[in-house]
Amino acid sequence: MGTLKTVKTGDTVKVAKINGAGAVKHRLMEMGITKGSEVYVRKVAPLGDPIEVTIRGYELSVRKEDAEMVEVE
């Protein structure tokens, strides 16, 4: 158990829960990061933030502070 922020590049994880509330949480979910979905961490931006993940077959960029809201298995 950890958050999406700590997942190593190249790893695929399953979303367990999304914490927090409001706009960011809702947007993350609307973009497809819902409970049970698989997330593949593709890379970290050159300056160390944000990260790029593959979700539901497409690429999404998420800031680390937002990725922290996503609990993964």
Binding site: A23, L28, Y58, E59, S61, V62, D66
Partner: peptide, 12 residues
Amino acid sequence: GDVAPFVMELPN
């Protein structure tokens, strides 16, 4: 107030 979340698609 509401900060637009930076959750952005990186299109092909």
